[in-house]
Simulated scan of single mutants.
Amino acid sequence: PSNPTGSAYEKEELEAIAQCALENNLLMISDEIYEWIVFDGFRHTSLASLSKEVQNNCVVINGVSKCYAMTGWRIGYIAADAEIVKQVAKLQGQSTSNPCSISQAASIEALTGPHDDVKEMVRQFEKRRDIVVKMLTAIPGVTCNKPKGSFYSFPDFSGLYGKKDGNGKTLNGSLEFTEYLLTTKKVAIVPGIAFGADNHARLSFAASLDKIEEGIKRIQEAVELLK
């Protein structure tokens, strides 16, 4: 699953990407930080699991910030060919040195211990995801695909572009639209232009259900004020 869309690659898609990379002698980098946060029975496939040849030609990036809600512990890691890891360690050792021993011990426990809490967290995210999509798509001019994973939705607000706010200002893109939501209803979402997709904006549902529902209610109220 990815940020900002919540989309995820099927195994067959990964196989096609890997084959293309191998044929062109490209090193693959796979960010799998959201591997456990998947919905509707979707199964994450690690790129390195496809074959030994793929494994030898890819770098898997991961960490404990997302799936284990350990953002402040600042632990990330890679899995790659030993020579690549050796060179990365040289760079890492001279830039940030190393994370504290407490963070390392806690991360090992998270990775190797029971995943009951993770599964419950994912169930709650899936529930919130469904509510977010339902509420957003009920707003005229807004469309939203259902994310397969992560805790983001990436609705399309372009159906509202060209409309004017109460001051007569025309909203022509995601920057102006998100600024309008912030100043009018105190709702902060990320403009899609930051991700190269100006028709969209990113919402996170890593918040309480009450706050999510209140936030989208305010978005709807702001949309109703447009002319």
Score class of each variant (00 low, 15 high):
12 E>R: 15
13 E>K: 08
14 L>N: 01
16 A>G: 09
17 I>F: 14
17 I>E: 01
18 A>E: 01
19 Q>P: 04
19 Q>Y: 13
19 Q>A: 11
22 L>H: 00
23 E>L: 09
24 N>F: 09
27 L>T: 00
27 L>W: 04
28 M>A: 00
28 M>K: 01
29 I>T: 03
30 S>I: 06
31 D>G: 13
32 E>F: 08
33 I>Q: 09
36 W>N: 09
37 I>Q: 03
37 I>L: 02
39 F>G: 04
41 G>V: 10
46 S>D: 04
47 L>Y: 05
50 L>F: 12
50 L>E: 09
51 S>P: 04
53 E>A: 04
54 V>A: 03
57 N>E: 07
61 I>F: 09
62 N>P: 01
63 G>W: 13
64 V>G: 00
66 K>L: 12
66 K>Y: 12
66 K>D: 05
67 C>D: 10
67 C>Q: 07
67 C>L: 08
69 A>K: 08
72 G>I: 02
73 W>Y: 15
73 W>V: 13
75 I>N: 03
76 G>F: 15
76 G>T: 13
77 Y>K: 06
78 I>L: 15
78 I>W: 11
79 A>K: 11
82 A>S: 12
83 E>Q: 10
84 I>A: 01
86 K>W: 11
86 K>G: 14
87 Q>L: 11
88 V>T: 00
90 K>N: 00
91 L>V: 15
92 Q>L: 13
93 G>A: 02
94 Q>I: 15
97 S>C: 05
98 N>H: 14
98 N>I: 12
98 N>G: 10
101 S>A: 14
101 S>Y: 13
102 I>G: 02
103 S>Q: 08
104 Q>G: 06
104 Q>F: 08
105 A>N: 06
106 A>G: 03
109 E>K: 12
111 L>V: 04
113 G>Y: 00
116 D>L: 03
117 D>E: 10
119 K>D: 12
121 M>K: 02
121 M>Y: 03
122 V>C: 13
